[in-house]
Structures are given as C-alpha cells and as structure tokens.
Write a protein that binds this DNA or RNA. Sequence first.
RNA 1: AAUUUAUAAAU
Length: 317
Amino acid sequence: RSTYNNLINACGSNGNWREALRICKQMTENGVGPDLVTHNIVLSAYKNGTQYSKALSYFELMKGKNVRPDTTTLNIVIYCLVKLGQYDKAIELFNSMREKRAECQPDIVTFTSIIHLYSVSGQVENCRAVFNTMLAEGLNPNIVTYNTLMAAYASHGMNEEALLVFNEIKKNGLLPDIVSYTSLLNAYGRSQHPGKAREVFDMMRRNNLRPNLVSYSALIDAYGSNGLLAEAVEVFHEMEQDGIEPNIVTMCTLLAACGRCGRKVNIDVVLSAAEMRGIKLNTVAYNSAVGSYMNVGEYEKAITLYKSMKKRRVKPD
RNA sequence: AAUUUAUAAAU
C-alpha cells in the first residue's frame, strides 16, 4: 500500500492527477484498498493539478463512503475552497473544526491557511486575530505562519505591520528565511518605498541568503511599479550576472515598468529580450505590454501586439 | 533526512 501511495504521490505532486487516479484504480483492482493517506494523496493530486472542484467532489465521495477525514484532509479542502473563492464555506469548516468535540482539531497548517484566507478575501484586519487565537490554543507558529502573516500585510502595502512581524520572528527564536525577506521587500515595494526594498534585499545577502528568482523579480517590481525603470533594468542585469534566469513573471514585471516611468520608452526592447531568452509571453504579459503601450501613447503598437497575440494563440481576457 | 496539507514576485 505504501508503494502505491508513493507512486500515486509521485504523479500527484507533479500535477499529473489523471495518472495518479489511474494508479489509484489499479491499486484497488489489485485488491489493495486505499487508506486515508491514499485519499489525502488523491486530494492533493487534484489540488496540485488545480482541479479544486474535483477535489471537493472527491471529498464528498469520501464522506459518502464513511471515510473519516483527518486534519490533513480538511486542510486540503480548506485550501481548495479558498482557491475557488468559497471563503464562507472555508470559514464554516474551520469553525466546525474548532468545536470542542470535533474529531479533527485545527493545527498550525489550518490556522495558517485561515490567515491566508483573510488576506486574499480582503479582510486583512482579521489576520492578527487568527494568529492570536492560534497562540491562545497553545500552538506555536513556525516560519510559514509568520511569513503568511507578513505576506498578508505586504500585499496590502502595510509595511509597518510587516516589519513588526519580521522582528517577531527573531524574537521568537526563528530565523527569517528567503520568503520572509522577500515578503518584507514586497511590503516596501507596495508602499512606495523602493529604497527600503533594496535595503531588505541587501540585508538578505548579508545574512547569507541567496536571492532567488522570486526575490529578484520582487525587487524589479519594487522599482518598476514606483516609476524607476532604470533601476529595475539594472536589477534585471544584476540577476542574470548572478546566474539566475528570468522567467515570464520577470519579463512581465519589466513590461509593466515600461508603462509607469512617465516617459516614452522602447517596450520592443523588452519584448525581444524575452524572445531572445526563449520566454513565450502569456496572457498576463501581453496585457502588461499592451497596457504599457497605451500608457506611453503608442496606440498603434498596442493594436499590433494585440493582433500578434491572436496569431500566437494566446487568449485575450 | 523521503507516502499526504499551509507562506513570497507580474497585467
């Protein structure tokens, strides 16, 4: 059974949920019944394949077969509900877990997921309360919990709150990791403090953490979204010299930066830079480029790009 | 140190 679970998991963690299901069926046909771990692996296979509704259906199926879920099961279900924007249902499930007699009590993952929920559902003011409740329940936050709380503040441009959390990490004997630094950096970028964002980036290096693709892209955006295109481009070069390959998000960030620097710049340069690196533009990147052309008043180029979008079979949204 | 769950970047 463990062998099968391992096999299913190998497919599922790559988002290959069809193959995962196929093996799961085969397992049953060979007379090996799935256990709860198997079910959880199937659920997470759906999740990794972004098949959130299918995951929820599977969960209903489990209930129909009287399979008792555990906290991990419910955590995955909460994750899927959040992805589908079904926040009320997620909260309902969370509350049911918190009842005294509930079989599956919320754990640190559950609480962290709920903090994240409140961030993405536009109720960041609830995040700290959830965090405090978790403490009151005697659960110790780990670095992911702190990072989630920080990211919540960061995405809302609340840099002071984010910094407070960052300092709490150290106070509680944990070490900020690359995600912590990137979130703090992002908090400054989102609140019009690109210089502070750079300071965080440098601080990360001084603490012997190597900035990765995400950290670099976040710094590029900190400059770009605040109108500092030259600095953004400089970081882009710094990144490549550091041996980190840009991806579509990086290029899209630069494309957006071109539309925000307040003057007419050559967006084509960025487009061909992407092409030279074999990075194919997706819908978001096209939107960004078209938007930037509009911002700088190059309406004809915007239309041309829109047309080439269709030619390359990238769906406009 | 390996069967399953939570966190950071773009329009």
